[in-house]
Design a protein around this nucleic acid. Structure first.
Length: 913
RNA sequence: AGGCGCGUAGCUCAGUUGGUUAGAGCGCUACCUUGACAUGGUAGAGGUCGUUGGUUCGAACCCAAUCGUGCCUACCA
């Protein structure tokens, strides 16, 4: 700690290794169980700001609970991220000119495992850089053997109970990735589109036609009806007749259905049941034919030769051209509409009829609703339960099959007649269903949605379905820390699965944190070019490297220039290195109840300075000679020692409370103020005065040093969950106790709280502040010592002055304090503090006018304050209705203000003589 | 369309069941390199809490309306 500058790079490297080597993150043998499951990050992904934030909060809780003596498990692990990972590997192969089909399923999966082993430890390395005290010993991966066993069991059990079924349904189909997606993986956003109005001639009547409005003319090829509203007078007469579909010439019925909006478009709607969710529902009601016109890549599949095998967008163009040429196209209008896109591929999603596996969700959802309603599980902040209920009450069956290769393959086999056999393995299936060896069985090609395995995470990681000690000890887990964006994807599903398969809720509380945005409130994303890598905040990054990171490998390369420009503007000098602790403290201080967290670099800088402050305070303490080894000095504490100890006691209580209530921002603020204000600005400054004084005996000095050290040590204990590195470094450097902070217990308030009144220290602080303020206002140089004369003191003041004059003199740069009855001379500056008038003689003649103005301004401030209170007190409603202590406080305050006003008046009179 | 939020100092945000003079960080102003720290010290300026009503002795906080803004969910061709 020789360096007078805090340098995080020097101290952060070594500690994590030490902690890990000493296995301090493994659950202890004793204590109450406390468990948090890490939301498993993508195994091949990298740490982003959201992770860093969330990890910080979980780490704070776990470190706090270890110090409370709990048997703490922070479960580590990763997720196989089916679509995302498969996409990355496919892209890499494409770059080499290989497609996944060239390789075949097995070899492709080998490639994915290769990729996982290459990049899979990136995220865990980054988590270690964050200081995350995860139990790496029990790290799990959703695709490892144990978890796969859990996935299989759940699938089979649900199937056998009739809660998983296979069905031909309209699904959200991603034509690029060629897989089904769940509702949640489809992002709809408003885009520019058009509405085309097209003639559909009535059958057997060459003149009459209906005007149909559509946004997707290519689906004409799949039309099987035209619908109108039964109450629509315009169209009533046509109901039951037929129309001829343009292009195909197909004759289809005109049906009536309440679904059709009379006032939208032409009020006349074409029905394409195979390619629209509404049309599909309508078709079921009216027994319409369902004609599929797309293949898996959304190319047209039809009998009309010139359209067959055309891409859907090409087909649209061609159809419009033909309609226009033949006079069928009546009108084109611009129209904003919601376009559904896949959240990974960004391809426009196509509703498509396919065979998929579903979880029948209602009964599971009912249970999951119940346990939140009955507060078995609590959301923090509570309000999020509304969002949860909103979704749960409108829940749809969950499509769990994905047409991918990377994931848990569905444990279902088919014989030649397509009969389904579900079981652990082919062997198991044969035994179970008594199938002879000569019957050919083929396994279902599909894999399960990644979220299916994630939904089992809280118990599969603990060893379920085996009845392990871990499941018994740690399930239900204590709290889930998560972002609101995955309440549906993950949280709800974990509750459903936990209740169903373990019979208990997976966690008792759900702390929902906000989403980290950039400083202007924009979501951080690669495409916006505003991402910050948390590791770059820790280590720092040059501007050019930052630009390269942001502007390369873009989905839209045309954004590159703009991103470069903005980055240059925002970070002209790149990003400084702030260290993990400062970053973590920033996250803690931003973790309020809001749902957006706008991340401002200036905050990190401020908290890096805070680290430096702590660092130097510790250096100061280290430099003092320590001559007391034990608690022997405790009875001889002076009032200022007791004052800081009492404040520490309050801090211990508050911090504990704030950690417990997930108010990390309050915890951070409390620690920040105590350390910077109470400890550094007041207590250390007081200590310096005393330690440098000749009038104080050695024993007293020893007590001060003892107290400086003890308070510092407890600061480190309290701060450690938020800032593990700097606290560990200082602790080990100064206290030489040969253990880690994590192995200490959380401080006990009783050791520090005091019965004795330390009001005199607060009184002293007020006096010193008042003198400093006056000095500044009258322009006395900071290093110039002044004399003061005190008048108006009462017995209490006399007593306080007797003991504290020395400190007042030292901290307010006063060389002499005298007490006078009267103040005849005019050549004083005046300082009023409570009932005291403090006069500062000036060697030069003071400017009476300026001094009068200054005092008058101060007086006016007091008057306006007192006027407000007086008005309140004059009303009988206030006196009668307000609680007693409020009235008393008001009266007290008014009395003080009056006294101060009077003191100033006295002095003004004196000046005007 | 429905649901949920937000609007407080120049900027980013707190404000825990309504209670004295509405807070913090950053930025800004003045002065200061004193032996823990200029990543610092001391002092200071800066807000009619989006708007309008209402409830109350008392409202940033509760209620209603309104304007602005964001997110989520949803089947308008």
């Amino acid at each position: 700690m020789a360096d007078n500058k805090y340098n995080p790079a020097e101290i952060e490297g070594k500690w994590y290794e030490e902690w890990e080597k000493n296995k301090i993150f493994s659950p202890s043998d004793i204590g109450n169980p406390y468990c948090i499951m890490i939301p498993p990050p993508n195994v091949t992904g990298t740490l982003h700001m959201g992770h860093a934030f969330q990890v910080t909060l979980m780490d704070i809780l776990c470190r706090h609970h270890r110090m409370l003596g709990d048997k703490t498990l922070w479960q580590a692990g990763t997720d196989h991220a089916g679509i995302a990972t498969q996409m990355v590997v496919e892209r890499k192969l494409t770059a080499q000119g290989i497609s996944r089909n060239d390789l075949g399923r097995e070899k492709f999966i080998d490639q994915v495992w290769d990729w996982k082993s290459q990049s899979g430890d990136m995220i865990s390395k980054q988590l270690r850089r964050m200081g995350a005290s995860l139990d790496w010993e029990s790290e799990r991966f959703t695709m490892d053997e144990g978890l796969s066993k859990a996935v299989n069991k759940v699938f089979i059990d649900l199937y056998e109970e009739g809660l998983i079924y296979k069905g031909k349904r309209l699904v959200n189909w991603d034509p690029v990735l060629q897989t089904a997606l769940s509702d949640l993986e489809v992002i709809s956003s408003e885009e520019d589109g058009k509405i085309w109005q097209i003639k559909y001639f009535i059958d057997n009547d060459s003149d009459e036609y209906l005007e149909i409005a559509t946004t997707r003319p290519e689906t004409i090829l799949g039309d099987t009806a035209v619908a109108v509203n039964p109450n629509d007078e315009k169209y009533k007469k046509y109901i039951g007749k037929n129309v001829i579909v343009p292009i195909t010439g197909k004759v289809v019925p005109i049906i009536s259905d309440e679904y059709v909006d009379i006032d939208f478009g032409t009020g006349c709607l074409k029905i394409t049941p195979a390619h629209d969710f509404n049309d599909y529902e309508l078709a079921k009601r009216h027994n319409l034919e369902i004609v599929n016109i797309f293949d898996a890549s959304a190319r047209i599949k039809c009998e009309t030769k010139e359209y067959n095998n055309l891409d859907r967008f090409e087909a649209r163009k061609k159809i419009l051209l033909e309609l226009e040429e033949t006079g069928y196209l009546l009108k084109t209008t611009k129209h904003k509409m919601l376009i559904p896109r896949g959240d990974r591929s960004h391809a426009i999603i196509e509703p498509l009829m396919t065979d998929q596996w579903y979880v029948k969700i209602q009964s599971l959802a009912d249970e999951a609703i119940k346990c939140v309603k009955e507060e078995e599980i609590k959301f923090v902040p509570k309000n999020w339960e509304k969002t949860y209920f909103e979704w749960m009450n409108n829940i749809q069956d969950w499509c769990i099959s994905r047409q991918l290769w990377w994931g848990h393959r569905i444990p279902a086999w088919y014989d030649e007649e397509k009969n389904i056999f579900v079981g652990k393995s082919e062997e198991d299936v044969r035994k179970k269903y008594d199938l002879k060896d000569n019957i050919d069985l083929t396994q279902d090609e599909d894999v399960l949605d990644t979220w299916f395995s994630s939904s089992l995470w809280p118990f599969s990681t603990l060893g379920w379905p085996d009845e392990t000690e871990r499941v018994k000890t740690f399930y239900p887990t204590s709290v889930l820390i998560t972002g609101f964006d995955i309440i549906f994807f993950w949280v709800a599903r974990m509750i459903m699965m936990g209740k169903k398969f373990v019979g208990e809720i997976p966690f008792k509380e759900i702390y929902v944190h906000g989403l980290v945005k950039d400083s202007s409130g924009n979501k951080m994303s690669k495409s916006k070019g505003n991402i910050i890598d948390p590791i770059d905040l820790i280590d720092g990054i040059e501007l050019n490297d930052l630009i390269n990171k942001r502007a390369s490998d873009l989905m839209q390369p045309e954004m590159s220039e703009k991103i470069k420009k903005n980055t240059k503007k925002e970070y002209p000098n790149g990003i400084d290195s702030y260290g993990t602790d400062a970053l973590r403290f920033t996250f803690a201080s931003l973790a309020s109840n809001g749902r957006d967290i706008n991340f401002d670099l200036k905050r990190v800088e401020g908290y890096r300075n805070f680290c430096n402050k702590l660092w130097n305070a510790a250096r100061f303490v280290k430099l003092q000679k320590n001559e007391i080894e034990n608690d022997s000095g405790q009875t001889n504490f002076q009032d200022e020692d007791l004052w800081i100890r009492d404040k520490l006691a309050k801090l211990i209580e508050d911090t504990n409370e704030n950690y417990k209530n997930y108010r990390f921002d309050f915890a951070a603020k409390g620690l920040y103020n105590f350390i910077w204000q109470d400890y550094c600005s007041w207590y250390i400054e007081i200590s310096k005065s005393k330690l440098n004084s000749d009038n104080i005996d050695k024993n007293q000095k020893n007590i001060i040093v003892y107290n400086l050290r003890e308070v510092l040590k407890n600061i480190l204990l309290l701060l450690h969950p938020i800032m593990p590195f700097i606290t560990e470094e200082i602790y080990n450097d100064i206290f030489k106790e040969k253990k880690f902070l994590q192995n200490n217990t959380y401080p006990d308030i009783r050791k520090f709280s005091t019965e004795k009144s330390v009001e005199n220290i607060n009184w002293m602080i007020e006096i010193i502040s008042a003198i400093r303020k006056t000095r500044s206002e009258i322009g006395v140089k900071p290093n110039k010592e002044i004399e003061i004369m005190v008048t108006g003191e009462n017995d209490k003041d006399k007593l306080y002055f007797k003991n504290l004059s020395f400190l007042i003199m030292s901290l307010a740069k006063v060389k002499n304090i005298s007490f006078k009855k009267a103040d005849e001379s005019k050549n004083y500056y005046t300082c009023v503090s409570n009932n005291l008038k403090i006069l500062i003689p000036s060697s030069d003649l003071i400017d009476i006018k300026l001094e009068t103005d200054r005092l008058t301004r101060e007086k006016e401030k007091y008057i306006s304050q007192s006027a407000g209170i007086e008005e309140r007190l004059s009303k009988s409603e206030f006196i009668n209705n307000a609680p007693g202590h409020i009235v008393v406080a008001d009266e007290q305050k008014l009395k003080e203000l009056k006294l101060q006003i009077q003191k100033i008046d006295d002095q003004l009179k004196n000046y005007s003589k």
